[in-house]
């Protein structure tokens, strides 16, 4: 279980480092995800890698038809 301050601290770092407004970012991300998936939840973690800075995990229930390859 995360502490009360975890989300706030994380969003502060996201804002400072990537100039990313957390609420707006999640809103747009949720819109994008709901276009392609039916999902239970989503987490965003910061990571200081050379090529990787943000890890987005989506718990997908069902992939919508829009993302399936057309036959």
């Amino acid at each position: 279980m995360n502490s009360k301050e975890y989300k706030r601290a994380q969003s502060m770092v996201l804002m400072d480092k990537y100039n990313l407004a957390r609420t707006e970012f999640f809103k747009q991300l949720a819109e994008l995800a709901s276009r392609h998936f039916e999902y239970d939840g989503m987490t965003v973690d910061t990571y200081n890698g050379e090529n990787l800075n943000v890890v987005i995990t989506i718990s997908v229930k069902k992939v919508k038809q829009s993302l399936k390859p057309s036959v």
Binding site: M1, N2, S3, K4, E5, Y6, A9
Partner: peptide, 10 residues
């Protein structure tokens, strides 16, 4: 108590 960031969260 969940009131302080844990070291692993940091």
């Amino acid at each position: 108590e969940g009131e302080m960031l844990s070291p692993f969260e940091v």
